[in-house]
Structures are given as structure tokens and as C-alpha cells.
């Protein structure tokens, strides 16, 4: 199977890294409390994946990201297109967007913790607010740069100004909005993990820290790997879906 061989060759470096890790840690060349044995990390990984507690934390994290992102996508796309379409929306939103753009998003975490406590609400709010600004900006720019000939073409075939948004503006700006959402997904995971590190009592970030503080380094490693894996799969899954939805569009890598 040439496809399988290609995958093996591609990910062989990863196996080499893990192999070197095991080779160095197995004979205790490096103290166990500094870097746990790779085999132990794997064992911890298996343990985690078969424990109900882990799935509880994963569900908490996942629902925070999901709700926060959904809010930011809906609000961001609506506001971005609205700003390009209605003068008064732009008048109102633009200064606020310009002002909030340079705020490093994790800096709002402590503020939201003060306002909304350390539960789900503060995390969702941080993710929603942190992701909405880049989505607004991209949707706005994408809408403004829709080829005017496409708009004119539709108008001369009987499309009314009101239907224009749905028939032309939205599909035409979708590729750029899709890219912005992909960036937002990465930002959402950073904000999730950061806010769960700072103050939480559920979630994968919290779990990582609590394993670290009791010295279960193999479990800590395993959770970190799982977070990385989830972030990576979310990105790839989204990209795969978008490649289908936007089959008409040519995507570059990245």
C-alpha cells in the first residue's frame, strides 16, 4: 500500500523522537522526576483514555471552546458584514474594534474572572471576546473586497439589493472568513488552556496543573499530549470540512 508507506515515511521522524526519548529514559540516564519514561507516559495515556474523570474534564474544556467559538463566529461574521453594509454599524463598531484590536487577548482573563467567577462563564466570555475581533476584521475586509463585477453581474440578472447579501456577498467572502475562523480556533485553544491554568477547577488545563503539583509527571505529560492532539485535530478537522464546503475555491497550504 503506497499510501500507508507515505504516511509512515512522513511521520517516521516523530517515531524517531519518541524512540530516542525511550532510549534515554529507560536506563535512567535522565532522572525519572525530570523526564518520565516514554513507556510510562504511554501507560498514563491509556489510563486517562479509559477513565471517566478524564472525559469529564475534556467535556468541560470542549464545551467552553465550542460555545465561545460559536458565539464569536456568529457575532463576528454578522458585525463584519454589517459594518461593510451599513454605514451606521460601521460608525458605531469601528472605533471599538480599532481600540480592542491591540489588547493581547489573555490580558482580559483576570478581568473576566473578577466579573464572572472561575466557572465556565468567564472562560466562554474570554474565548468569545478574544476570537470575535479578528473575525470581524476579516469579514469586513472580505465583504469590502468582493469583486464589483460579480455584484453587477447579479444585479443585471434581476437580483435585488436585499438578496445580494445572501446570493453574492456572503459566498464570495466565505473563503477569507473561513481562514479567519481557522486562526480563531487556534486562538480559542490558547485562551482556553491559559484561562484554565490561571483559575479553574475543571478542564484539561486544570488537570495538567493538578497532576504537575502532585508530581505525577507521566500523567502531566500525557494530558499535555492530549491537549496538543485535540488542538491539532480541531485544526485539521476544520480544514478538511472547509475544503469540502469550499470545493470551488483553491486553498493554499498553511
Amino acid at each position: 500500500m503506497p499510501a500507508l508507506r507515505k504516511i509512515v515515511v512522513r511521520f517516521l521522524p516523530l517515531l524517531l523522537v519518541f524512540g530516542a526519548w525511550e532510549a534515554l529514559t529507560a536506563p535512567r540516564l535522565i532522572p525519572e522526576d525530570f523526564i518520565p519514561r516514554f513507556a510510562h507516559v504511554l501507560r498514563a495515556l491509556g489510563d486517562l483514555l479509559s477513565s471517566a474523570e478524564f472525559y469529564g474534564h475534556a467535556a468541560a474544556s470542549f464545551s467552553r471552546v465550542f460555545i465561545g467559538l460559536t458565539i464569536s463566529i456568529i457575532a463576528g461574521v454578522a458585525l463584519g458584514i454589517g459594518m461593510a453594509w451599513y454605514r451606521w454599524v460601521k460608525r458605531f463598531c469601528e472605533p471599538l474594534v480599532v481600540l480592542s484590536y491591540p489588547i493581547p487577548k489573555p490580558a482580559i482573563i483576570p478581568v473576566f474572572i473578577i466579573w464572572l467567577g472561575i466557572g465556565d462563564l468567564s472562560k466562554i466570555a474570554v474565548i468569545a471576546l478574544g476570537c470575535v475581533v479578528p473575525i470581524i476584521i476579516s469579514s469586513y475586509n472580505a465583504t469590502l473586497s468582493v469583486d464589483r463585477y460579480l455584484v453587477w453581474s447579479a444585479l443585471s440578472k434581476g437580483t435585488s439589493e436585499r438578496r445580494l447579501l445572501r446570493k453574492v456577498i456572503f459566498p464570495a467572502s466565505l473563503p477569507r472568513i473561513a481562514v479567519a475562523i481557522r486562526v480563531a480556533i487556534a486562538v480559542a485553544f490558547i485562551l482556553l488552556v491559559s484561562s484554565e491554568f490561571i483559575a479553574a477547577n475543571t478542564g484539561l488545563g486544570y488537570l495538567t496543573f493538578s497532576y504537575g503539583s502532585v508530581g505525577s509527571n507521566d500523567y502531566m505529560f500525557a494530558t499535555i499530549f492530549l491537549i496538543v492532539a485535540v488542538g491539532f485535530s480541531a485544526d485539521r478537522g476544520y480544514a478538511a470540512v472547509m475544503q469540502r464546503v469550499l470545493a470551488w475555491h483553491e486553498f493554499g497550504e498553511l
Binding site: 463585477y149 460579480l150 464570495a172 475555491h249
Partner: peptide, 27 residues
């Protein structure tokens, strides 16, 4: 603009998200 005046532009301006068939049936 109105549907009584059809236009073909200097630069091809098909809707890239529609297939050939869907583009022709648009109007």
C-alpha cells in the same frame, strides 16, 4: 441595474462558487 439589460464584462465574472450549470441558470 435591471434584468432588461444583460451585460458581459471585459473580465470573466462568473460566480466561482457555482458550477457551470448553476452559473448559467442563475438569472
Amino acid at each position: 441595474p435591471g434584468a432588461d439589460r444583460g451585460i458581459v464584462f471585459q473580465k470573466y465574472s462568473l460566480f466561482p462558487w457555482r458550477t457551470v450549470m448553476q452559473n448559467i441558470t442563475y438569472g
